[in-house]
Design a protein around this nucleic acid. Structure first.
Lengths: 140, 140
DNA sequence: ATCTATCGTGTAATAATTACAAAGTTGTAA
DNA sequence: TTACAACTTTGTAATTATTACACGATAGAT
C-alpha cells in the first residue's frame, strides 16, 4: 500500500505489537483519512465493514498506538478527542464555521520558549482557530 | 483589590453584566488562582465558602465570561477543561509528572504560519508537555 | 410596591470514556 | 497436533464531565 502504512507496519513489528485485523483497519482508516477523526467517526465508518466491531476496540487500539507513539492525540475542543497519524510537527487550524481542521507547516524550533530553559519538552502543540478561506468567501 | 480585578469589573460594567455574588467569587477565584483550575477545583474550593453554591452556576458563569472574552478556555488534556483569566497570549507547559501547568511567554507573531495566508486567525494556542524542573531534579 | 428580566439551584438527561469479565485468537513448545 | 499462556475483542455496566430544564430567588426599573 502506501509508504506511511509500510512504515507503520515495520514499527509495529519492531515493537512486537500484533497487527490484528481490527488494528490494521483502524490504522488504515487513519492513514486514508488524515482529517483527524474522532473515535465516533472511526467507529461509525469501520462498523459498516466490520459489523462486529466494538467501540471499545477502537478506544483500545488508539490508546495502544498513542502510547507507542504511532498516533498522536489532537486536543482542540474540550469535548472531542481527535487522532492524527501524522506525527511530524505541524500546526492545526480549526475553522469555527465548517469545523474542519487544516494542517499547516510550522517550525517549532522558531517558537521561542523564554522561561522554559530548565524544562524537558517532550511534546509541542500549536493550534489556531478562526475562519477558513472557503467559509470566508461564502460569507461575503 | 488588584489591578486585573478592577479591570474585570470595569469590563463587566461596560458589557452590562451583573456582578452577582457568585460571579464575583468565581472571578475572584480565577484571579487569585492563576493555576488554570478545572470546574471541579473551582467548585470544590468555593463551596466551602458559599455552601449553597451549585456546580451549574460555576458552569454558567464560566460560559458567560468565556463568551464575553474575559476568560479563556485552556484545552490541553481532552478530559479536563481548564479556565484562565489571563487573556494575553502566552504558552502553557504541562508537567506530565506533577500535572501542574506553567505559563511561559511567547511571541505569537513569530510563529510562522506558512500556508495560512488566506485564513482569518482569531485565536492562537501553544502548549507543550514534558517534565518540569522540580520533577526533573526529584527523579535524579 | 409591582413587574419583568435575569440569576442561581437541584435534579435529570446526555455524551464520552473507562472498567471489567467472558469469549475468541494467536503463537509457541512439547 | 495439542496444550498452554498471553493477548485481543466484545458487550455491558460504571464513571465522569457537561448540559438541559424547571422553578424559586433576586435586583433594577417604573
Amino acid at each position: 500500500m502506501n509508504q506511511l502504512f509500510d512504515r507503520l507496519q515495520n514499527e509495529l513489528k519492531k515493537k512486537n505489537i500484533n497487527l490484528s485485523y481490527q488494528r490494521l483497519k483502524v490504522l488504515e482508516y487513519l492513514t486514508q483519512n488524515q482529517c483527524h477523526p474522532t473515535v465516533e467517526q472511526i467507529y461509525t465508518d469501520l462498523e459498516k465493514e466490520i459489523s462486529t466491531l466494538s467501540k471499545t476496540t477502537v478506544y483500545n487500539t488508539l490508546k495502544k498506538m498513542v502510547s507507542e507513539g504511532l498516533v498522536r492525540i489532537i486536543t482542540i475542543e474540550d469535548n472531542e478527542t481527535r487522532y492524527d497519524i501524522n506525527t511530524h510537527d505541524h500546526g492545526h487550524f480549526k475553522c469555527e464555521i465548517c469545523k474542519n481542521i487544516f494542517d499547516f507547516d510550522i517550525n517549532m524550533d522558531l517558537v521561542l520558549t523564554k522561561g522554559l530553559e530548565r524544562f524537558k519538552i517532550l511534546d509541542r502543540n500549536v493550534y489556531f482557530k478562526g475562519i477558513c478561506p472557503g467559509c470566508l468567501s461564502n460569507s461575503k
